[in-house]
Amino acid sequence: MFGMLRGIWDYRGFILTSIKNEFISRFARSKLGGLWMIIHPLAQVAIYALILSNVLGARLPGIENKYAYALYLIAGILAWNLFAEIIGRCLTVFIDQGNLMKKMRFPRIALPLIVVGSCLLNNLLLFAAVMIIFAVLGHAPNVQMLWLLPLTLAVVALAVGIGLVLGVLNVFLRDIGQVVPIIMQVWFWFTPIVYSVNIVPDYLKGTLDANPMYPIVSAYHNVLVYKVAPNLAEIGGIFVVALCLMVLGLFLFRRASAEMVDSL
């Protein structure tokens, strides 16, 4: 473990430069550049809001704003996009960078770190846009938003734990790469993002307890929309789950790192 941390520190310049170059290269020939990272999720919000706000907007208690549903939706998608993007990119990061792993000598754990850094940069740009939209819609920032720092850490830890496990397994069993996007779509709709939890039938509410993203998305709603502190006990439980998954992911990574290069 200490050797892995030392390798990360020794190659910190490589990691930071890779994050910067990746961001630049993704939008090198685009007129709007990094704005597309903001436009895509906000377009998703607009579509859901136009279709569903008339149905669900009146069922959001405790929000004194005529744009309540849009605020609720934006807060949930801010959390989910970071989670889904990290998992999606960790899923294929070793396959996508197979040639680099064969040609260069560097700590392989740097690849997931580059993914996390890039995703956090994208999420930061989206958050800045969200703050502007909230202000335009009459929902001023509040001190509770400081809770977003540990909440973002919880999202990243959970996503990295899951993504690292899936990324390693996907090298040896490529069917995983086909199944995971389907699971993520189902997972999205089983998380109260486009609907409020108060409309979920009682016989289905028990399933939310098995969804680790439910406490996180609820915490984002509490902080950004309802302006209250999150449930710390629930978030603490998510950190424990995320830590266990990260330990499992690192164990699989250390055991399989040599074989991964041969398989690629």
Rank of each mutant, 00 (worst) to 15 (best):
G138S: 11
F253W: 05
V156K: 03
V155G: 04
V155W: 03
R255D: 07
L208N: 05
K227G: 06
R254K: 14
L148D: 01
L232V: 12
L151A: 05
I235N: 01
G161P: 01
H139Y: 11
V156G: 04
F188E: 01
A157Y: 01
A210M: 08
I183L: 15
L169A: 14
G236Q: 14
A135Q: 10
A159K: 00
A154R: 00
T152N: 00
P201F: 07
C244K: 11
V186M: 14
D202G: 13
L146A: 13
D209P: 05
G249L: 02
D175T: 05
N211R: 06
G138K: 14
F251H: 11
A256C: 14
A159N: 00
P215Y: 05
R255P: 05
L137S: 09
L250Q: 07
L173C: 11
N211W: 00
R255A: 12
A219Y: 04
M213D: 02
N231C: 08
V217N: 01
T152G: 04
V197G: 10
D262K: 12
L137D: 05
G167K: 05
A242I: 02
V240G: 06
I216S: 08
L208D: 03
G206L: 09
V228T: 15
A154E: 00
I183K: 10
L232G: 10
K205M: 11
L248N: 05
D262T: 11
S196E: 13
V136L: 10
S263T: 15
I235C: 02
V155Y: 00
L224G: 02
G237I: 04
Q144W: 13
Y203A: 12
G167F: 04
N198G: 02
F251D: 10
G163R: 03
A154Y: 04
G138W: 12
L243H: 03
P230N: 07
T191M: 08
P212W: 02
A157M: 07
K227S: 09
I176A: 05
A229K: 03
D209G: 09
G177D: 03
Y226H: 13
L148T: 01
F239E: 02
K227Y: 04
N170E: 04
S196K: 09
M260H: 12
F172P: 00
F251K: 11
P181C: 12
I176S: 05
F239L: 06
I183C: 13
A219C: 08
S196N: 13
L164G: 00
R174V: 11
F253D: 03
A256G: 09
A135Y: 13
V194D: 06
C244N: 11
A258H: 14
N198K: 05
Y214T: 09
M145N: 00
T191S: 10
Y226E: 06
G161I: 00
L164D: 01
P181S: 11
M260R: 13
I235F: 01
I183D: 07
N142I: 07
G236D: 13
P192N: 10
G206W: 08
